[in-house]
């Protein structure tokens, strides 16, 4: 039994919303970073599903690039988090209050 396209889109939309809410309400940088990864992967599911149903290759290629770039983002992001953590011993968003007007 073939899975209909709408099922993929629903899963992807739910994942995207989860990531979006996670970025907006969670207070820990690591979890914020994970939420962003969820958002990127929601897009990947969409792209691969569309690519299959539209019979065009472009979607899968975009998904590959998104995976690569997400890996790069995680590397750079964790490096920055480590630098901050050394100075503050905290990864909480609310303690980032040095810069404000």
């Amino acid at each position: 039994m073939a899975v209909p396209l709408s099922a993929y889109i629903v899963v992807s939309a739910v994942l995207f919303t989860t990531g979006l809410i996670g970025v907006l309400i969670r207070r820990n940088f690591i979890i914020v970073l994970m939420s962003v990864e969820i958002m990127l992967n929601a897009a990947n599911i969409n792209l691969v599903a569309f690519s299959h149903y539209l019979e065009s290759m472009a979607g899968q290629i975009i998904a590959l690039f998104i995976i690569a770039i997400a890996a790069g983002e995680a590397a750079v992001g964790l490096a920055i988090i480590i630098v901050v953590f050394r100075g503050k011993i905290s990864t909480n968003v609310d303690e980032m209050n040095l810069l404000k007007w």
């Binding site: 970025v23 958002m39 990127l40 897009a43 990947n44 792209l47 472009a58 979607g59 975009i62 998104i66």
Partner: peptide, 15 residues
Amino acid sequence: FAAGLLTYGISLVYG
């Protein structure tokens, strides 16, 4: 976060 919005936007336009 902006990159996440961008990729999802791209996936919708492509779809």
